[in-house]
Design a protein around this nucleic acid. Structure first.
Length: 218
DNA sequence: ATACCGATTGGCT
DNA sequence: GCCAATCGGTATC
């Protein structure tokens, strides 16, 4: 199983992310993410299929904010929402398709002291239980969007000190799928595809909340 | 120029 | 379980 590299993490190549977003979201389970002195094991992800996906920021076309999603895979898309939260996405697929994986939850494996200091008063189980909490624990914000985290580096994209490494394989038997959290609309609520992936039995997986039905005001 | 709303979270009932 | 917080992006006037 483990290709003889137990003491050194194997960084996932750009080709890993250049595949269809559903495959990337599935295979990211169990991967190791490192940034800001903390390493975690990914336990939950969600796929966003770009301009053909009503639940995606990219659905209405490219804007300065969503530009990273329209570029090559292996680049971050970190966005701000609810006036206070940052979320981490990893761009997948082919350029122009705007596919991306939202990293929703993880289990801290290294840097417990750093994480604890960064999240005072929070139980360890909740450090990365939810996309905004995960970004906070990894010390990610708007300055980290549109950055290349693969090697070799892309020429015109700023690199970032984010590592996405291979982890112990997660068997299909323990992979669960379901509708996306907090997303509504035609197809966006996950009725068309199982956009959300998580590891069965993981206490760090965020709790499911159905999307709010958006009501037209006028 | 202005109004509405969100790929959420934490606090309170 | 319910709701306020808080502000940039996007739609609408």
């Amino acid at each position: 199983m483990d290709p003889g590299c137990a003491d050194r993490p194997v960084t996932l190549p750009r080709e890993f992310f250049a595949r269809p977003v559903l495959d990337v979201a599935r295979d990211l389970l169990g991967a190791h993410l490192s940034h800001g002195g903390v390493t975690l094991r990914v336990t939950e992800t969600e796929a966003y299929a770009g301009h053909r996906d009503p639940g995606s920021h990219a659905f209405r076309g490219e804007t300065p904010r969503t530009a990273p999603m329209f570029g090559p895979a292996g680049v971050t898309y970190v966005y701000f929402t609810y006036g206070m939260h940052w979320m981490l996405c990893l761009v997948a697929g082919q350029p122009g398709t705007a596919e991306a994986v939202l990293v929703r939850a993880g289990e801290v494996e290294q840097g417990h002291d750093v994480a604890a200091a960064r999240r005072p008063g929070i139980r360890e189980r909740d450090w990365c239980r939810g996309p905004a909490r995960l970004a906070t624990t990894l010390a990610l914000d708007g300055s980290h969007t549109g950055r290349d985290f693969c090697r070799p580096l892309l020429g015109d994209v700023e690199p970032i000190d984010l590592t996405v490494a291979h982890g112990a394989p997660v068997a299909d038997a323990v992979v669960r799928t379901g509708p996306r959290v907090g997303v509504s609309g035609p197809g966006g609520d996950g009725t068309a595809y199982p956009w959300r992936f998580w590891i069965d039995g993981e206490p760090t997986v965020s709790t499911y909340r159905p999307g709010v039905i958006r009501r037209r005001t006028r």
